[in-house]
């Protein structure tokens, strides 16, 4: 794939914490306006990768390019508004769903319109009545949906989704998959999605990364999971239940 088609490009990126190497010589791209899934065993460095993309961490060496521009040349605030991150455990600020939804605009000194908040809730499959519910009263799945809606408030060009459906039931999982595909198609949003669910990766992705032990083992379309040729990917796929 041509590098001009890359929303995000990694060139020989290394990241370590103290003496522990988390990401090793990572080189690869996330194609623009496509859905890329990242699969791999726990501890492969997937969540760290997202923190690098969102500039919450910086690599020890190597370069990351966002839309062809070096990540270090961006203003961190501008970059973070452009690259939305929905985290695995869906952290919330205390208060209501409304307090969480208005947060991204409040941080910029702007005000979210209540109708827009309700529209976002409906979009992620939550009824309007949840708007003034306390976040402490929400289930894991509901929190995850609120987290996605909150990330969408900034209208990001790139969506980083970290295991967002892991605490959802099958119906909700399917709804979220449809929603993400819809966002990708309608707004040409680049989606990068970490998932443990290989079937989900096959269903939604245009492109897939297999990340193991901090290394990019293979990247390509879903066939690298359905008919793996790489030995390490074969072993990983065999160990995962679809």
């Amino acid at each position: 794939m041509d590098n001009h088609d890359a929303a995000i490009q990694f060139i020989d990126v290394n990241y370590s914490v103290e003496d522990t190497s988390i990401l090793k010589n990572l080189t690869g791209i996330f194609p623009k306006a496509k859905i890329t899934t990242i699969v791999g065993p726990s501890g492969a460095g997937k969540s760290t990768l997202f923190r690098l993309c969102n500039c919450l961490r910086s690599p020890n060496s190597g370069e990351i390019y966002i839309n062809g521009k070096r990540i270090s040349d961006y203003d961190p605030i501008t970059l973070r508004k452009m690259i939305g991150l929905a985290l695995q455990n869906a952290p919330m600020i205390s208060g209501t769903v409304w307090n969480n939804l208005e947060l991204p605009l409040k941080l910029q000194g702007k005000q979210l319109i209540e109708e827009e908040a309700k529209r976002l809730l409906l979009l992620v499959g939550l009824e309007e009545k949840f708007l003034f519910h306390k976040v402490g009263d929400l289930s894991g799945g509901q929190r995850q949906k609120v987290s996605i809606a909150r990330t969408l408030v900034n209208r990001p060009k790139v969506l980083l989704l970290d295991e967002i459906t892991s605490s959802l039931d099958r119906v909700s999982q399917h709804e979220i998959e449809e929603l993400i595909v819809k966002i990708n198609k309608e707004f040409s949003t680049t989606v990068i999605w970490i998932t443990h669910n290989l079937q989900q990766a096959i269903n939604v992705s245009d492109y897939t990364w297999v990340l193991m032990n901090g290394e990019l083992v293979e990247a390509g379309d879903a066939s690298i999971l359905t008919s793996p040729t790489n030995e390490r990917v074969q072993q990983f796929v065999k160990g995962e239940s679809f």
Binding site: R80, K81, L87, N89, P91, P104, L107, N154
Partner: peptide
């Protein structure tokens, strides 16, 4: 976590 959340949202 909340601190990083706010940073991640800009």
């Amino acid at each position: 976590e909340e601190t990083e959340l706010i940073l991640s949202l800009g």
